[in-house]
């Protein structure tokens, strides 16, 4: 039983750390395109870890294996890239300025118009 608690606690802590890293990234990175990186990945993985903890916890309570959290994990990993893409599309549309030292930022106009 102690082993289950340890595994659950470990997954919870890993998840919380990644969620915190994603939120810190969102808070302190300087431009919108960079801020996009924190929430789409670190928080997704963090939530995945926390749901894994939930699976471990509820599977060893005698009510059989708990699988329904897989559905949330699946859904989150499916939708995170779509959200990121929609946000970046909107950012290009309203002409968000990237940081001054961004590589290839002279090509933003052609990216927006989906040219080469």
């Amino acid at each position: 039983m102690l082993l289950i608690e340890l595994a659950t606690g470990f997954c919870l802590m890993v998840g919380a750390i990644f969620l915190l890293v994603g939120s810190i990234g969102l808070f302190r990175l300087p431009d919108f395109y960079m801020r996009l990186h924190g929430p789409t990945k670190a928080t997704t993985l963090g939530l995945g870890a926390i749901l894994t903890a939930s699976i471990i916890f509820f599977s060893f309570r005698g009510d059989g294996i708990s699988t329904k959290e897989i559905l949330i994990i699946w859904f989150i990993f499916l939708t995170a890239p779509i959200t990121a893409h929609m946000l970046s599309k909107a950012a290009l549309h309203v002409r968000q300025k990237p940081r001054a030292d961004t590589l290839n930022q002279d090509r933003l106009a052609s990216i927006r118009e989906r040219r080469q």
Partner: peptide
């Protein structure tokens, strides 16, 4: 594109029309 968005360090932004 989804793979690129999920692997950290990169986000796919846009694809050319062709």
């Amino acid at each position: 594109a989804s793979t690129i968005s999920l692997t950290p360090g990169t986000v796919s932004i846009e694809i050319t029309e062709d």
